[in-house]
């Protein structure tokens, strides 16, 4: 599928994501938008049927749900239940009843270890399977991420790729002002993983990075992204928590439509 077509899918997914969050009056839009491009590219262009995907940043469940919707694994009726009573689609994924979902996530710092276990099992079973795990950047303040990284590097889990959505913003400040770390690269490199970078809103760069993995090391792909890209509260703390107002939602849809026309 050409990149242009992928861009169209991303725009469609983005509109559906905003609509879904707006109608559910749900926040966490910023972190959903920042990783949506990568999620779409990964699922449409990279993942093989037997591969595994772990959404460690469970607060981006909306982006996963609409990605599965673009793949035909969910329908509109499913998405309409998002964050409603009696739903299979809570704001953080429950880990059951959803295509491809293996674990409940939402508490940060769990995904890398779960992914390491899956990668280890694949090696043990001689299955040519790759494991992808999507984390946030703030999530790496959890010690468990580093425990998992040490383990994965030691066991040479070259069938594991951890993607980090490095948008620089977390719950109550920037990663720079909270832990003096706006770029995780040197710290992760020091642990012995193979680190690549890409503009997280550039489809070509994301795809190229995901296709050029190290053959003998744990792969880390750091995506430089913008939280809430294109929204009224782009790159602000508001984008982490607050739902869109009607005005903000209409404006965002208008911008997206114009982009789609381009």
């Amino acid at each position: 599928m050409p990149i242009n077509d992928i861009q169209t899918i991303i725009e469609t997914a983005r509109n559906r994501l905003l609509e879904m969050h707006f109608h559910a009056n749900c926040g966490h839009i910023g972190g959903n938008v920042s990783c949506l491009d990568a999620m779409i590219i990964l699922h449409h262009r990279v993942l093989n049927p037997d591969d595994r995907f772990i959404l460690s940043k469970g607060h981006s469940a909306g982006a996963l749900y609409v990605t599965l919707w673009t793949l035909g694994k969910m329908n509109d009726a499913d998405l309409k239940t998002f964050a409603q009573n009696n739903t299979m689609l809570p704001c953080h994924p429950s880990g059951s009843g959803i295509f491809g979902l293996l674990f409940p996530t939402g508490s940060l710092g769990h995904g890398p270890s779960l992914a390491a276990g899956l990668a280890l099992a694949a090696k043990h079973n001689n299955v040519p399977r790759h494991i992808y795990c999507l984390c946030s950047d703030g999530e790496w303040q959890e010690g468990s991420c580093w425990e998992a990284l040490i383990f994965s590097v030691h066991h040479r889990l070259n069938n594991l790729t951890i993607i980090i959505d490095q948008n620089g913003l977390q719950g109550f400040g920037t990663t720079k002002e909270i832990i003096s770390c706006s770029d995780l690269t040197p710290r992760i490199e020091a642990f012995g993983a193979h680190v690549q970078h890409a503009d997280g809103h550039n489809c070509g760069e994301i795809l190229k990075s995901l296709e050029s993995k190290s053959a003998d090391k744990v792969n880390i792909l750091i995506l430089n992204t913008i939280k809430g890209k294109g929204l009224a509260f782009e790159n602000t703390l508001e984008s982490h928590y607050l739902p869109l107002t009607e005005q903000e939602y209409r404006t965002a849809c208008s911008i997206n439509t114009q982009r789609g026309d381009l």
């Binding site: 270890s113 779960l114 280890l120 468990s144």
Partner: peptide, 8 residues
């Protein structure tokens, strides 16, 4: 976490 991944 690794145990959970293996058990899965």
């Amino acid at each position: 976490g690794v145990a959970a991944g293996l058990a899965r």
